[in-house]
Amino acid sequence: MSTDHHHHDHDHEHIDHPDTDAGPWSEHRYIEGALRELLIEKGVVTAEEMRAQVERMEGRNPGLGARVVARAWTDPDYKARLLEDANAAVDELGIEIQPTHLIALENTPEEHNVVVCTLCSCYPRNLLGLPPDWYKARAYRSRVVREPRAVLREFGTELPDSTRIRVHDSTADMRYVVLPRRPEDTEGMSEEELAALVGRDAMIGVSVVTKD
């Protein structure tokens, strides 16, 4: 049967050829196609709804989160609102909000925040897009709560011993985004220029924002 889970012969590492759509398909890729076609035939979803939702997700990327960060760096009142009620502050910038509770975590010289979802893959998708593979994988989920400093070092991030690291475990109902520290010597930069400095990893908390 097609949903038999005991197929160990397919290879997750195969290279796909998206331009030609050649190459082998995994069993589950077929099952996705079969399920989707059946749901469309039965009128549960429409092909247009599927297409539009894929497009909506593709339109989300860390640039949205970077806008929020840059606004918080340049507008102290906005920052206060962000830390008070992140969903409302995100909505204020016209960014779609999720039905989950969003909490913004402010990094300071004394405290650095890192986000994980040890149970699965909860992530502020509306602000950052889909999570990177490592965020969903065993090594990060297992280790970052036990040895965050070592994990940050693997990402090239060295923090002073005096900086406390707090790890936040996301849930299905609660998502976190890190408000990184604004780099030194950026006083003259515009909000747009500042946003361009802010990358995905800094908003997860495995890196810091630098000017260069």
Partner: peptide
């Protein structure tokens, strides 16, 4: 798995394939 022992973090990612985006979209819908 939080707190378990595990090896180095593989930072290599992959570009999501259309079928992966579609199953994600299916769940959202």
């Amino acid at each position: 798995m939080g707190g378990d022992q595990a090896g180095a973090i593989d930072q290599e990612g992959h570009a999501y394939l259309l079928w992966e985006k579609r199953i994600d979209a299916m769940m959202v819908l």
